[in-house]
């Protein structure tokens, strides 16, 4: 059995060695290959782009899941509510300051800005 295998291997080896490619390469083939390599390297994304694509891919994956989408919506709802409370508190403080100043100046024309 072993001798049969070794005979077949030798035949195969001889056959492979005898195989010659006669077809000529297209003109400037090597140059074209290098040009393609350069183009691929030039168009490859920067580090930021790669990070962004990874982020977008993962975010899209999360959002496709019901739990992920619900968590995202809930987080933005809470953020929106927080922003609403914070900005309305600022409005209230500024408004009360304006009112206070208006009253003091209405009753005392010689006044400067009132202290709190």
């Amino acid at each position: 059995m072993n001798s049969e295998h070794s005979v077949n291997d030798e035949d195969l080896s001889r056959l492979l060695q005898s195989w010659r490619v006669d077809t000529p390469l297209p003109p400037r083939f090597k140059e074209g290959v290098w040009r393609r390599i350069e183009r691929e390297n030039a168009s490859s994304p920067s580090l930021w782009q790669q990070c962004w694509e990874v982020f977008v891919g993962r975010a899209a994956g999360l959002l496709r899941q019901p739990v992920g989408a619900a968590t995202y919506l809930l987080a933005l709802l809470i953020a929106g509510a927080g922003m609403g409370y914070w900005s309305s508190a600022r409005f209230a403080n500024r408004t009360e300051e304006t009112w206070r100043t208006a009253y003091v100046q209405a009753v005392n024309p010689y006044s400067t800005a009132p202290e709190r």
């Binding site: 933005l76 709802l77 953020a79 922003m83 609403g84 409370y85």
Partner: peptide, 17 residues
Amino acid sequence: GLALALSTTGVIYVSRT
């Protein structure tokens, strides 16, 4: 989500002010 955040901000701001 962004629309929800903006509208929540607006509703709370308007109602509290």
